[in-house]
Design a protein around this nucleic acid. Structure first.
Lengths: 355, 355
DNA sequence: ATGAAAGCGCTAACAA
DNA sequence: TTGTTAGCGCTTTCAT
């Protein structure tokens, strides 16, 4: 296919005119230096004279040189590119995490590449995504998916540092930065209690449906009970049907057995609203409502009483941990951090009955 | 730290015990074949006997071999990894696009790697992100960011196929798959018109704020006027302040000069709601409202009348176009597609005044 | 401060 | 069907 293969005359090494085919060799030649010197100009630790440096930069600029990361990291035994394994870009919380990680990483002068398993369930795809990152020989990995279990990561730990973000991870070899759901639940429950509610419905999906939502529900219920408040746990078993538990809550309110309902996520609160309205239940006059997450765009505008999970801080901490691990290849302590969220007061939480 | 450093005995070439240091050479040796044969087993086009194939797979499995993508694509002059340049993972529409692209790509047996410019404004970061992808010598690129201009891509077009997604792109060398905002606006305007409204406020941010929102606003207003409906354009100049134009709309309604307000995005509609409620304006009895996007989680539950942009179809088309370009390195037609959205009827659009 | 040369792990002719 | 060999574009000793 290529022209003049083995033909007479000077060999034409440029396969095409594109800048992507400009090699460091070409840049070096154009600058009148050796390949080694050019390399030193771009990343080297050894000093280069200002004159040659400028010449190389000029040549690179002129030719539109784009360094070949593949060749570079092959020769250098690994790259400084970090990998992010992201669960579900559809989920606004993950989207925000992605964005925040990216910001902090560029600010730290590093680069990041993200892969997401196909949303089709299946550990197979998660494995595949993990391998894509590993295959790129990334310099470090952020793992933001619950499906990858610690054991899958263990074999690589001594070669690529890992920080699990957004989910607690107890493994002694794996750093983690996550949200303190226990504390979150307590903050919300306390807010409800302090508004004088004495009987509350708590929507608690099963752990199979959502580990996080389940944990929140359980913790909220426990806290309320500890404060002497009567709790009606609403199981909400079928994850797909969005109005699970809804009628139950409305019935509880109608018969005067609750004055508030707590949801383990904002979208469940949203899902409840139209039903409440249809049933003539006024919020918060008849029934107080709380959510959790505080991420959704516009949530603040709707005036929900909810709890904002500290995504920004998590991203920032995760990058800090990664960076110190990278800078201290020796031995950095493994950390397991739990970050508390902040309560968002809103109009959906009113006062309970006069005692 | 590592054992037998500089000790007597055979030199230990393996820097560590990690599977990441297992080379194809090691696998080949373990399987009793040559490196070339091992290579053929994994990706080769030439046939390999079942016996050796199995032996190689077994050895790879046993050693936990993870192919080095760097070396592979360096030797093969490019990889089959596709790149996605993503604008803002925070925006749910982009998050969904990301996710959908990923699905279709894995389904097509390809791989994708995503980079996002740091959210901090600045063409510099976009360039950097572009270079990150180019540096990886991706086999193709999806561009989902408005900031990268066509000229930045042109130099690479004959080496890496590009599909711009989510924004119209007229360049004759660049494929694009985007949303038909003109049609979207028409659908919404027609719905409002057919509900009998004769005087409507249309929120229209400037093009500097949001190209898309501006286009929608302008097109909605034009369509309404063409149908003989009186339009009050609300400029909404300051992007940061969320209640821009809000009081104006409420005043228009109070003085009976409009019966409906159209917003160029759902979040502006959300932003308006609390103000309407505070002002005692009932929706849709006093004032009908429409949004646009239909992406936000829970939007359907809130019953907004809006228009769902066809993110899923865009992703699917983009991958199809990419694939056929990849399969036909010869000459595939460049396509520019415009996909219409679908109207989402809701409870916020009521009937206009009896004529 | 710079150049020459030996690979990094892999693929792809070409031989056998 | 399999092995041999020459690179891919770059980094990095080791000399100079």
């Amino acid at each position: 296919m290529r022209a003049n293969e083995g033909a007479e005359g000077p060999p034409d090494t440029s396969h095409s005119t594109s800048p992507l085919n400009v090699t460091m060799e070409a840049v070096a030649t154009a600058a009148g230096v050796s390949r080694a010197t050019a390399s030193r100009v771009f990343y080297g630790s050894t000093p280069v004279s200002p004159r040659t440096r400028d010449a190389v930069y000029a040549a690179a600029e002129k030719l539109g040189y784009v360094p070949n990361v593949m060749a570079r990291s092959l020769a250098a035994h690994g790259s400084d590119i970090l990998g992010l394994l992201l669960r579900d870009p559809t989920n606004p919380a993950y989207g925000l995490l992605f964005s925040e990680l990216q910001s902090h990483i560029s600010r730290a002068g590093l680069q990041m590449v993200t892969v997401a398993p196909s949303r089709t369930e299946g550990a197979h795809f998660e494995r595949q995504a993990l391998n894509r990152l590993l295959g790129l020989r990334v310099g470090g990995m952020f793992v933001a998916t619950g499906v990858i279990r610690a054991e899958m990561l263990v074999p690589f730990l001594d070669v690529v540092p890992v920080v699990v973000v957004g989910r607690p991870e107890a493994h002694p070899g794996i750093n983690s930065v996550s949200y303190d759901e226990e504390d979150n639940a307590i903050q919300l429950a306390d807010a409800v209690a302090e508004h004088g509610h004495r009987a509350v419905a708590v929507v608690t999906p099963s752990a199979e449906n959502s580990v996080t939502e389940n944990r929140r529900g359980v913790a909220m219920a426990r806290r309320l009970r500890n404060r002497g408040i009567q709790v009606h746990a609403i199981p909400a078993p079928t994850f797909g049907r969005r109005d699970e538990g809804v009628q139950e809550i409305i019935a509880l309110r109608r018969s005067g057995r609750i004055t508030a309902a707590m949801f383990p996520s904002d979208w469940r609160l949203i899902a409840f609203l139209p039903h409440a309205q249809a049933a003539g239940v006024r919020v918060p006059d008849d029934l107080s409502l709380t959510g959790c997450d505080g991420i959704m765009q516009g949530i603040d505008l709707l005036g929900f009483t909810t709890l904002r999970i500290p995504v920004e801080r998590a991203a920032q901490r995760a990058v800090t941990v990664m960076k110190s691990t990278l800078d201290n290849p020796g031995r950095t302590e493994i950390t397991h951090e739990l970050l508390p969220g902040t309560l968002v007061p809103g109009r959906t939480l009113g006062h309970g009955p006069p005692s």
